[in-house]
């Protein structure tokens, strides 16, 4: 028999209540139950990275995460990346600036992955960026520009920190 459970999730800093079957993944909960369709379904089996979002600031695949598992955790999706005034995150701007996408379908996953990649300290060289962005497939073939965008965004993200150190 189909049963539903009540979940109270913290998504992009907002509390969201929903009733879903226990088997519903975080990805389907976002897209089908919470109208947050920015997170994409590319393969639904952990093979493409399009569904990447952050749970407690770590990048994960929402297609292999149950919605029920993230109760009590902080979920961030592409919709929660720009600031409250709509000012884009440095990675988002860099993706536009360096044409790091074409069709745009893998893009939210790429961007969520890139934000985490920089935060993890895995954007130290182009080779490292390539390896640590390899969990996000892009069939349009924007890889060169993704590497440039991540590299440039990493500089932009770390710039204020350096200024503080100097001061």
């Amino acid at each position: 028999m189909t049963r539903t459970i009540h979940l109270s999730l913290d998504i992009n800093g907002e509390r969201r209540e929903l009733d879903v079957e226990p088997r519903v993944t975080l990805l389907d909960a976002l897209r089908d139950h919470l109208a947050l369709t920015g997170t994409k379904k590319g393969c639904d089996q952990g093979q493409c990275g399009a569904c990447t979002c952050h749970v407690d600031d770590k990048r994960v695949l929402s297609c292999l995460t149950l919605a029920a598992q993230v109760e009590g955790r902080q979920v961030t999706t592409i919709e929660g990346l720009a600031d409250e005034n709509g000012v884009l995150h440095a990675v988002q701007s860099a993706f536009i600036e360096h044409d790091a996408f074409q069709c745009g379908y893998c893009t939210p996953g790429q961007i969520m992955s890139a934000v985490a990649c920089i935060r993890e300290g895995h954007a130290g060289s182009d080779a490292e960026i390539r390896e640590y962005m390899s969990g996000n497939l892009c069939r349009c073939g924007a890889y060169n520009n993704i590497v440039v965008a991540v590299r440039e965004a990493a500089k932009a993200v770390s710039a204020p920190a350096r200024m503080v150190e100097v001061a």
Binding site: T37, K41, I78, L81, F95, E97, F101
Partner: peptide, 21 residues
């Protein structure tokens, strides 16, 4: 010119076929 619809695609606001309620 940079991609005209770029800001929609980087924010998740571009709507693909299965995303219409």
């Amino acid at each position: 010119q940079s991609r005209f619809e770029g800001s929609l695609k980087v924010t998740g606001a571009a709507t693909y076929a299965l995303e219409y309620p």
